[in-house]
Design a protein around this nucleic acid. Structure first.
Lengths: 189, 189
DNA sequence: GGCAAAAGTTAATCACGATTAAGAAATCAT
DNA sequence: ATGATTTCTTAATCGTGATTAACTTTTGCC
């Protein structure tokens, strides 16, 4: 039984206990050690991953050969390369555990099987995606609204716990600037 | 009959002619003159809009009191403020016609009605959202990968027609820099 | 516990793109 | 057609954050 996931799904749609048992037989949990990869460039992304414990990051190597983090995956979030998952073309991304973690894999093949039998799963994923898309829109809005320094300060006050949980260089990468700059603004105040 | 939309939906899911007729009775097309608004800050977003003709833009006023475009809506794309639509809280965005346009409004209330009767509509919207989300991810990837000048040059070679279709200051806003800078790099080559 | 590697700091210089301002060109309305 | 408004251009100056490099601190490992 994958309780963390079931609880999450039941916040959005109704699932009976019998349905739950059937769904759970199709899912596979994996434990990941810090630095383990769920996806690497060149590989095709096979699943959407629900993070039931720990913390993952999604990143790629940019033109300057530097790691660029585009997303973190905390407990209760889904993480995947939707582009590769959808098209089944090779990914350009890494998905890696930042801390020891546990994920539940929702395979693309399972997606098609299960949504046939349980239409409310489509509703669930539609809602999850809508939330994720709204978050992405807000992120773009943020990037264009604030300077790097402002974005860091907002982020720190909004997610103080998270800031302590990740290495500074990862936070700098996620926010789109250099670790040196982060050091500088931290020293300032 | 809203053929542009039906065609679009049938690329993703199966819809019989009877279903189509029923769906269409719930939809309302509106024609918009250039500069007409579909949404303004403070208003709650009531619908998702399918652009059947013309071009719209979604933008907000940023901290520096300047229009910041976050999205264009071309023929065949959906445009809305998913955040406001979902939560029914007031929006911070404008949705405005850049050219004379025609949109089909898919009301939030209709969404709930129709997806009850036609589960394949959930599938359709899930797929649309997945595509939109993948695009937003790619956009973030882009912002962090290239300089402003590179992004402009890539955009121009990838969408030469579109560049001619919108005023330069809107393109500059969408790409996240000033019209002056756009002029400068255009003059360079 | 000691060494190596990873992560964080500090400071000097540099570059990309913003800002300001003024003028030119294009579009719109009467 | 004419004036008014909107859009685009050009140039000088300025500021944010990148780059480079040397050093310090922390973490991981046998």
């Amino acid at each position: 039984m994958h309780l963390a996931l079931l609880d999450h799904m039941r916040k959005y749609v109704t699932i009976t206990d019998e349905e739950a048992t059937l769904i759970c037989t199709k899912l596979k949990a994996s434990t990941l050690k810090k630095k383990d990869f769920l996806l690497q460039p060149g590989k095709v992304c096979r699943a959407n991953y629900f993070v039931s414990k720990g913390l993952l990051r999604l990143y790629f190597i940019n033109k300057k050969e530097q790691e660029q983090i585009t997303q973190f995956g905390l407990e209760g979030w889904w993480i995947t390369d939707y582009d590769s998952l959808d098209t089944q073309k090779p990914s350009r991304f890494y998905i890696q555990a930042v801390e020891d973690a546990e994920v539940i894999a929702w395979d693309k093949t399972v997606q098609e099987e299960l949504t046939q039998s349980f239409p409310q799963l489509e509703t669930y994923f539609r809602k999850i995606l809508q939330r994720a898309y709204a978050a992405a829109q807000r992120r773009i809005e943020y990037i264009y609204s604030y300077s790097d320094e402002e974005r860091y300060r907002n982020f720190s006050t909004n997610f103080p716990g998270f800031v302590q949980r990740v290495p500074q260089y990862m936070l700098a990468s996620y926010l789109g600037f250099t670790p040196q700059f982060l050091s500088k603004i931290r020293a300032k105040k």
